[in-house]
Amino acid sequence: MNEIDYKSDVKPTWCPGCGDYGVLNSIIKAAKMLSLKPENTVIVSGIGCSSNLPHFFNSYSLHSIHGRAVAVAEGIKFANHELNVIVTGGDGDGYGIGLNHMIHAMRRNVDITYVVMDNEIYGLTTGQSSPTSMLGHKTKSTPFGVIETPVNPIAQALSASATYVARGFSGDPGHLAELIKGGISHKGFALIDVFSPCVTFNKINTYDWFRKNIYKLEGNRTDDFTEAMKHAKETERLPIGLFYKTDTPTYEERDLVLKKSPLIKQDRVDNNILEKLMEEFA
């Protein structure tokens, strides 16, 4: 059997050196390791530089609207839970406009994998502060520096009951691919926050900056929520790796209708069932 080509015929349009190339490569690597079938895989994205990713990957995909990718992905998963559903997007899309949906998808434990390319800036709109921009960061919309505490995606995900919480760095695609592979294999909601530098609009959080400020989690107890939260709250140096993983039933496993079989395989019920229901109106 020929090796599946996960690259589509569309060339990425990101700036040279953009962190998102590393993320795309890691997703392709993970897909190869898992031998994902392109026809059974759907990548969903919102809007932003990173949200163009689905066009560059060979699978079904839905390039949706700003902030709503997770909700769209939930709908796809509920309609056909045999599909591998991966969401890709940026920090503005996921932790800003779309944060509400992310939190609810996490507490539902829908079996989707969410890869957030976190560059701590709005790139496509040419450089405004993002929900993860650091305190003091001067951007076009915050010329005097950010005065809001940034969103902590890992702590946010942990408190929202996500069942697989990890962080990678696009400068280390091998490590990232393993985290993504783990997320796709995991049954339940997986968040992989990825430090993915914007080489054009974020001159602070650069590759070098990340290399200096991150360290790899090793030997941590990933089934220990308190330990995971402790690592999530670290500020001195930023941990990457798997913070937390726990096995709880997914939404699809708990829902009475989806339990029976994928929704798309369930036909409209017979008329006798509808006619029986009519009796409640008699």
Partner: peptide
């Protein structure tokens, strides 16, 4: 958005 996802699927 969910309904659109489901319909797409």
């Amino acid at each position: 958005n969910m309904a659109i996802g489901a319909s797409y699927a």
